[in-house]
Design a protein around this nucleic acid. Sequence first.
DNA 1: TCTACTATTTGAACGTGTTCAAAAACCTCC
DNA 2: GGAGGTTTTTGAACACGTTCAAATAGTAGA
Lengths: 245, 245
Amino acid sequence: MFKDQSQTSLPPEETKAERTRRKVFDTAMTLFRGRGFDETTMRDISKDAGMALGTAYYHFPSKEAIISAYYESTQSRHHAYVTEHLAECKTLQERLHMVFHSKLEQVQGDRRMLGAIFKFNGDPKHPLSVLGDETRELQRQSVATLALALRGERLGREVAELLPLALWALQMGLLLYLLYDSSEGQRRTFRLMDQSLALTVQLLGVVRNPLLGPVVTPILRQVGQMLDDAQISLKDRPPILQELK
Amino acid sequence: MFKDQSQTSLPPEETKAERTRRKVFDTAMTLFRGRGFDETTMRDISKDAGMALGTAYYHFPSKEAIISAYYESTQSRHHAYVTEHLAECKTLQERLHMVFHSKLEQVQGDRRMLGAIFKFNGDPKHPLSVLGDETRELQRQSVATLALALRGERLGREVAELLPLALWALQMGLLLYLLYDSSEGQRRTFRLMDQSLALTVQLLGVVRNPLLGPVVTPILRQVGQMLDDAQISLKDRPPILQELK
DNA sequence: TCTACTATTTGAACGTGTTCAAAAACCTCC
DNA sequence: GGAGGTTTTTGAACACGTTCAAATAGTAGA
């Protein structure tokens, strides 16, 4: 219809195909948020987007692929937000608070979509399984984003290795909790999050207490070895869990 | 076809309907184990069971309901096994070992079916969500079975409240790991399990150390309060997570 | 044995996600 | 502007889980 003459120089990358793809994505997001993932059909999406069913499938190989795209986009938005606001936070508490709160606020409106993400963890072969092969890179990024909150902390080797993964697990748990939390404004999840983070900081204090070193260090070391052995680790190429052996 | 004349007195409860239902269940189990849940069609099941599609649906309201029945049957088999063998185990280690090993051995052959169970956790409304409303009773039983391993232990109030739930979470984690573990005989999962249990016992030692009481007790108390507040608790009617507030 | 009722079985039909061959639009080089 | 090629769009078709009205088998009371 329209030749895109207004933007000859700015983004030369917005091809027609990309515009269609975005139209599918945006329409799907609106419908998913409104009715939920399962209640929205691909036919609904293509109809609302003003195109044929096959067209939507040309741009997204499956319905879940749309969720996957959402997953990527929130992750990168979160990462951007965190890197931007990191300098403003002075203490560890502040950094953890900022990192976790921004994540939660970001996905707060998408509660009904989270289910669609958690749904696929049961299938190791499934591309959307958070623990699986295909989301490995995404999961690595997610851990890296959270690890930014630990920047500059003096941590023992064991803690430095384990904590980012533990934070990731905590975040996953909180997102799962969010999914079930229909309290107003999801305040329950926010409270649980604050308490969890306070506890984390407190535990970190215990772990760093030199008097308790002899008790704590061997345990941490053992936990680390155990997770390594089970390949639930972060050492160089981080799989979390792919098909094992 | 056959009038069942051989059992006039033994089980008066095996009606024809029950026999058909069992036929559906058994056929489904065979196919699920062989090809996996998703790869098995309701049409496959009904054909192999020698009946029409609608008949299978008369006895099970949905495909997932068959998994649900499996879920119940393993839980009760596990419980029976544990109560029977509990007396043979003298130490805490032995009891934990027996309880966890028997569970794992029981579901070992059903790896491919576990995915179908984990799949539904994403949806709070879904009857098969392990955290949800409808599986509450089943989850309570599961925790109770695991708690049998702690019978007779002297535990502080906080630990006594938290540990069973922690064991349940551990078991869930191990089952998820099992799902991804295609190592021969699932030895990776067994090893991870043994290590986790050893660590559990070791941690229990730390927690019980009277010298560390002042450090450990307030933390445990706080964790307990936090989970209570978030309704992730076991106090009287245990919800774990249902739709919140 | 017949009658009325219930429990069970049947397969056609529906809505879904997905696939695909063909049509249409677009692009590039002459 | 037209020929040849590629990208995008289209809607019919498929297999699946599920529903349902109708057919059949079973049962209990006369």
